[in-house]
Simulated assay, not measured.
Amino acid sequence: MSAQPPVFSEQDLQACNTLGLPARAPVAVLEDESAIPALCEALAAGGRAEAPLFVLGGGSNLVIEARPRHRVLRVALRGIRLWEETAGHWIVEAAAGESWHGFVAHCLSRGWPGLENLALIPGTVGAAPVQNIGAYGLELDQRLHSVVAWDLRAGGERTLRPDECGFAYRDSLFRRDGAGRWLIVRVRFALPKAWTPRLDYPDLRDHPGLRGAGGASGAGGPAHEAAATMPTPRQVFDAVCDIRRRKLPDPAVLANAGSFFKNPVVDADQADRLQRQFPALRTYPQADGRVKLAAGWLIEQAGWKGRRLGPVGMHERQALVLVNHGGARAADVQALARAVRADVRKRFGVGLEQEPVVLD
């Protein structure tokens, strides 16, 4: 006997988005993969008469309207396992409803390093490929093995390799195709046995917990000394957590959706002009010859760090993070976002793109 599809009922979603925006919508919870075929049949039978579907993970990258036109499917699938082991990698699979940070910590506890730079990023495993999350010199697609997802329009399950996911900076096929098409159920990661630390970012490289990590003995020559001072995966994990806790507000204490704007990527000529005009501008050359700019620095220089507009504002320690001081609605968030974008464009001639998805 096939499983029944999840049942939708009107629910409060304020606790389901880390910005703490008030909202109500029809919500169903998916706890069992076996219910997905029946869900696809129900969606096909409903056709255009039914409200469109929005797949919700941890709600950490979301701006939600008070009465969205969508039905919301909350993904609560659980499970982590070593799916395969090769000569060079551990292939680890996690269900979409697992906490991302919890998954990273679990891998480390099992001796499977490689994701520690992405520690403490809020949200779920299933949402991570949608946004192609990244931090401190590591992008998710650099560790991805495959994504198992249902195409809810076509009604079938697919396993997509990284080159089939359309990954770009904080973007993917799953995001571009719009809400309601893809339901990610499991994600697999190829974690390297020959692990080396990623310490490209100055904040991480200069962290006190990583300087001189391992304690060089001075014996055995330069190669031995370099090996002795290489930090462990746990030390990198702890340093990333420490940096994020110091720089970023905890959504449980001060409602926010993390980085609200993407770091803009411009051509090299524009970056050179800006660098000459603003020598302190933080830039990051990209493989394609373009240059990524630090959005937080641009926002801070435009005067928005710690500044409020009604119940919302940009955080006092990290200008890239939009926070809800209490009582905000989606319109307040978008009004502040428009004001910040306008001031950054006026000062630098650079456009900012919003990172969180809008559930309208």
Rank of each mutant, 00 (worst) to 15 (best):
E10A: 15
C16E: 14
T18L: 03
E33C: 14
L39E: 08
A42Q: 08
G46H: 12
A51G: 09
E65P: 01
P68A: 15
H70T: 00
V72W: 00
V75H: 04
V75G: 10
A76G: 04
G79Q: 07
I80F: 04
A96V: 10
W100P: 00
L115F: 06
I121L: 15
P122S: 10
V130Y: 04
G134A: 05
G137K: 15
G137V: 11
L138W: 09
L140Q: 06
D141E: 14
D141I: 11
W150H: 02
E157W: 07
R158I: 03
T159F: 01
L173N: 03
D177N: 00
G178N: 00
A179K: 00
W182D: 00
V185Q: 13
T196Y: 02
P197N: 00
R198P: 03
L199H: 13
D203N: 07
R205T: 03
D206W: 01
P208N: 09
R211H: 06
A216R: 12
G221N: 12
H224I: 14
V236A: 12
C241E: 05
D242K: 03
R244Q: 11
K247R: 09
F261W: 13
V265I: 15
D267I: 04
F278S: 08
P279K: 05
P285M: 04
R290L: 13
I299T: 02
H315M: 09
L322S: 01
G326W: 07
G327E: 09
A337Y: 03
R338Q: 09
A339I: 11
E353N: 08
P356W: 10
L359R: 10
D360I: 03
